[in-house]
Amino acid sequence: MHVFLRENVRLISMEENQELEQAKKERRLVIPGDHLGDEQAGHGTYVVEGKVYSKYIGLAEVRNGKHIVIPLAGVYSPKRGDGVIGKITDIIFQKWIVDINSPYEAVLPLSDAVEGFVDLTKEDLTRYFDYGDIIFAEISNVNRQKQVQLSMRSPKCRKLWGGRLIKVTPAKVPRIIGRQGSMVEMIKKLTGTQIVVGQNGIVWVRGDNEDLAAETVLTVERLSHKGGLTDYIKETLEKKVAELKPVKDEEKVEEAEENLEESGEEEL
C-alpha cells in the first residue's frame, strides 16, 4: 500500500531514499487491538504483558525505537507546544475562554496575551480580543485535569482578521503542512493566499483565491494517506491557477512570499 513518508525527514541522497523506502514498508495500516510488537510503546498504543497493541485505526511505525500509531480519525487532544486556532467565546475576570475545537476549552490569561500593564478598572478586555475573534495561539500548558492554557507570547501568535476557517481531521494536519511545510507553502504560493494551519484541525485561509486554496486543503485531507501527493496537488493546482488568473502571476508570487513570514504553521 502507499503510505506517506515521515514529514520530518529530509529527502536528498539515494541512500537516504532507500532507507525511506524501507520505512515506508514498515508503516502499515492497523486497527484497534492489532499486535505491533514487543518493544517500547509510544503514543496511540497500549501494553498488556509486555506486548504492544494499537488503540486506533491508523498508521503504525517505529519511531526512535518506539511503536507509535498515528490515528486516521479522532478529536483533537490538546498538547503542550501545539499552535492552535481558536475562537474567543467568553471573558471571565482576567482571562479569555477560547474554543479550540476540542472537548476541552482553553484559557488565555491576560498576562500571556498582552504586553505591559493593563488597568482593568479603566480598560475593557474586548479592546484586545472580542467575542468571536479568531486567534492563533500556542498551548503553554495542559495539566492532568485537562485544563488548557494558551499564550500569545510567540511572535507567530496573532489575531486572524477576515478570511475563512476550514475544519479538517486533526490527525491529518501533518499532511496539510507537509514535509518541512512543503505542502502548505506550495498552496500559498500558487494560490497567493495567506494560510495558517492549527494543529487542532482548523485551517485559516485569506486572499483573493480563498475558494481554490480551501478546496485544495480539503483535497489534501481527503487523499492524505496517498503517496506522491505533493506533486499531484502541485500539478492540478498549477492548471487551475492558470485558468483562473492568466495575467497576474508575478504579483501573486510576490505577495505570497510576503505572507510566508507571517504565517505560523507548525510541524509534527
Binding site: I31, P32, G33, Y46, V48, K55, Y56, I57, G74, V75
Partner: peptide
C-alpha cells in the same frame, strides 16, 4: 467507535 478514532483496546 473505531471509525470515530475513539481509543479502544480491541473490538
Amino acid at each position: 467507535l473505531a471509525d470515530a478514532g475513539v481509543p479502544m483496546r480491541d473490538l
